[in-house]
């Protein structure tokens, strides 16, 4: 297992595109909880950046940034096809399962590191923003921490799947953007319009699950009472159902990738 991880790390660590992308991502990710409160629109909502709602806000902001993670995973995976190195790894003695396991481990480690960073950075931001030095309620909404981990893994699993499906960087990135923005939204609209229980299905599509804002932000900002009872308005976690759905889609995307790599002529 460590060997597969070392192989993966040796491949990407000197890769300039990876360094730049992960660098930009990390800078934005770390700056996020300190910069969000400077958005004029949010300035009246200082509470969002205090304990314990900071976990929700940080999670919500980080969802936007994970687009960079998708590009990283797509790039390093499609590279294996264009450099024909997946093929070479097989020749050299890796099994097809190892190809998937290596990438899976890399993503798991990346997601775990980011989660630790999420906790440390979120806590520091929360302390800085705290109205008084009482951190007793800091962890009330800590449910967003595993939620963030599952979101990161989910988005990477989805990107990995698209990268394996299309095998070309440009095509896979285009497919990712196309699916996240118009395609799934159109699909959701159609499902709700056509079927009686369309909403049931549309809410369970991959992007809807992985990008799961469980708070109706439009309602929150237009509701004058929301600001007064923000803590009640924002749930303490993403909920069991969303958690299971995230895990479900992650398993599906890794499973499909595994199936493709196993069956394919490389």
């Amino acid at each position: 297992m460590m060997r597969l991880l070392r192989i993966e790390w040796n491949k990407i660590q000197p890769y300039r595109a990876f360094r730049i992308l992960i660098g930009l991502y990390l800078v934005s990710f770390i700056a996020l909880p300190y910069s969000m409160e400077r958005i004029p629109f949010l300035q009246n909502w200082q509470q969002l950046f205090e304990f314990p709602t900071i976990w929700f806000s940080y999670y919500f902001g980080a969802e936007f940034l994970s687009f960079a993670l998708a590009i990283i995973i797509i790039t390093i995976t499609t590279n294996e096809y264009s450099n024909r190195t997946f093929r070479q790894h097989i020749i050299d003695g890796l099994g097809r399962n190892d190809l998937v396991t290596g990438k899976l481990l890399l993503m798991a480690v990346l997601a775990a590191v980011l989660m630790v960073l999420f906790v440390v950075n979120g806590y520091i931001a929360g302390m800085i923003n705290a109205f008084e030095a009482d951190y007793s309620g800091a962890w009330i909404k800590a449910g967003y921490i595993p939620g963030f981990f599952l979101h990161t893994v989910g988005i990477m699993a989805f990107s990995f799947f698209l990268a394996n499906l299309f095998r070309r960087t440009g095509l896979a990135i285009f497919a990712f953007i196309a699916w996240v923005f118009p395609v799934e939204l159109i699909l959701r609209g159609l499902l709700v319009g056509v079927a009686k229980d369309g909403g049931m299905i549309s809410d369970r599509l991959p992007v809807a699950v992985i990008y799961s804002s469980n708070v109706n932000l439009g309602e929150m900002f237009s509701n004058p009472t929301a600001i007064l009872n923000l803590n009640e308005f924002i749930p303490s976690s993403l909920g069991l159902e969303n958690t299971l759905m995230k895990i479900g889609w992650t398993v599906v995307f890794f499973g499909l990738s595994w199936w493709m790599i196993r069956r394919r002529d490389l």
Binding site: N79, T85, I90, G93
Partner: peptide, 17 residues
């Protein structure tokens, strides 16, 4: 797969990063 570790191979074109 493990058997291939005892096989050195050059197939068609060199594949490297």
């Amino acid at each position: 797969p493990a058997l291939r570790k005892d096989i050195g191979a050059l197939l068609e074109q060199p594949n490297f990063y």
